[in-house]
Design a protein around this nucleic acid. Structure first.
Lengths: 317, 317
DNA sequence: CCCTTGCGTTTTATATACAAAAAACAAACT
DNA sequence: AGTTTGTTTTTTGTATATAAAACGCAAGGG
């Protein structure tokens, strides 16, 4: 990883490093001496500005991976694994803090009723209060904390009540979305996607012993496909909360994963079949059944957590 | 308004000024020479810290309204109207910007597809980018804007689609909440409140010609009473969006207000009666009917706006 | 002992500073 | 006319500075 340009700075340069690694990967597939794509093409491919691409190009030249020849850039040597920046450095401070904060919360390090101060969190996570203050409203949106004006934030806790409330809304939304799904024509994009997802479910079911770790991604795609068809920004937005919660909860609650995956796959298939048959009654039944299972899994994992780390404090409001 | 302490500063001192005015109002009801309540009592009454109260006391002493006598503070003269700070200065920068931003949006000054940059907004509203960056995620939660990472924000517009989507969710939530309302005992707080609200409806209906402006507050209380009983943080949170939207929309759309108020009052009464009768069928009917009317009012006012100010630009995404 | 005030410390609200990244502009090349 | 690269300007992400406000301890008084 040799650019010699990691001075210090206030903004961090995760975008640069991510793009650098991206270009590096592109170089890997090119023969020696091949010409690089234009700056415009690269910026489009990596979804960053041309400014960043130019900085990356300069870095790659400095590292001896590219060389300039009459304006064009050519591959001078193939990149080594060592040329890339460590993955950790390719995510912004903000994203890192969000992840760490959620992990910390879901790990049960603090109990319901705990007061969070921005200043302390900033110290704890080694960033400025700016970043913390940017994220707290986000977690409020998740229903995890509550603001006291001019003062600290109240942590409401990942409690059974939280699970119940989130699932109450989730069920309303998913049922509503499912109903709009059956109104779409068979040849619409969501229907095509759903048939693919069904096939993937069968494949995964066959190789469940080895591949059950691939389930979360499939789960997300199924439910998102359903939610998308509701074509309602508030419903989609809410699914982002669900999605986040599951992502982090899954990492925590690894017990029994294979068995739970099997159950979920089975329930999903019933749900999908009902959807594709446009059988409203069966959809309702399958959907409710699946969400009920999912909710008890979440509740069980919350219970477990409360037993493992018995809330360090419990000062009421 | 004489404290001589309005230097400049980075935080603004709206809390101080609001508390100062609050104490002033308290002084108004006291006889000359009466002793002020303790600092603790005052801080409780005004919901600010004792620190602020002490600063206010100092200000009042400097203004000659209070005088110290062996530790105690006594009323030296009655306050004049002129002693108070102007209301405008008693709200924080943040709240001011939020209000102005929403008014600007709802006034239709920009059209769907417009790109908002934090820097420009800061200039426009005469604040720092910090405040703007704090509020944009809030409006994203409202479904009004969408973030492009590392770049500007996309204004999605107060469009018919917005109204439709928000009402789709509102209906789901309100019906759900109404159903949980009938499960409560007659002597529960919400039921008592509901009976009061019913009475107020009848009073307002009788004096509608002069008092129709008092309807919005009543409307808010009715719907919030229903929503509260759902006991679900996500449902409550969503009603905050509705509430905000109505607050600002009402100011814009003054046409026909009396007629619309009459319709709403009538529909409300049908709804309330159905609730108090625990008649599920009738609740459903009345609730849907009312929300349907409300939605068409919103849609009409959106249409009007789009005609009046024909979106200055319409660059697609 | 509980409540009061006085006072020092910490935290919040807001503005500003500055490197990284994006956007806009311009010249050169097809 | 449409791309490509070079250059300048603007905006974003993050840290920091500072007054206002909140918090918490200590001493005095009923």
């Amino acid at each position: 990883m040799g650019t010699g340009r990691e001075e210090f700075g206030m903004k961090g340069n995760a975008v640069y490093k991510r793009s650098y690694n991206g270009c590096l990967a592109m170089c890997g597939g090119l023969p020696l001496g091949a010409e690089m794509p234009s700056e415009n093409e690269l910026s489009q491919a990596l979804a960053v500005s041309r400014t960043t691409i130019r900085t990356v190009m300069a870095g790659l030249e400095a590292a001896g991976i590219l060389r300039r020849e009459e304006g064009a850039r050519r591959l001078a040597r193939h990149p080594e694994p060592d040329d890339a920046f460590p993955d950790m450095q390719t995510v912004s401070t903000s994203a890192t803090v969000e992840r760490r904060f959620l992990e910390w919360i879901l790990d049960g390090h603090i109990g319901p009723g705990h007061l969070l101060t921005a200043a302390e969190l900033a110290r704890q996570f080694g960033t400025s209060t700016t970043i913390i203050r940017e994220h707290l409203p986000h977690f409020q949106h998740f229903g995890l904390i509550e603001r006291r004006p001019n003062s600290a934030w109240l942590f409401k806790g990942v409690t059974p009540a939280f699970a119940t409330e989130i699932y109450e809304v989730r069920e309303m939304f998913e049922l509503r979305a499912a109903r709009s799904f059956i109104d779409l024509p068979e040849e619409s994009a969501p229907w095509r996607r759903m048939r693919t997802i069904e096939a993937e479910h069968r494949v995964l079911l066959a190789s469940i012993d080895t591949d059950y770790a691939r389930f979360p991604d499939l789960d997300e795609r199924l439910h998102r496909t359903v939610h998308e068809t509701a074509d309602n920004r508030f419903i989609k937005d809410f699914y982002d909360i669900i999605s986040m919660l599951f992502h982090y909860n899954a990492q925590w609650d690894a017990e029994d994963e294979k068995q739970r995956t099997f159950t979920a796959l089975t329930e999903h298939l019933a749900y999908i079949e009902a959807l594709l048959r446009r059988d409203l009654r069966a959809i309702d039944r399958a959907c409710r059944q699946h969400l009920k299972t999912a909710r008890s899994n979440l509740l069980r994992s919350i219970d477990l957590r409360m037993k493992v780390s018995p809330s360090p404090d419990a000062s009421p409001a």
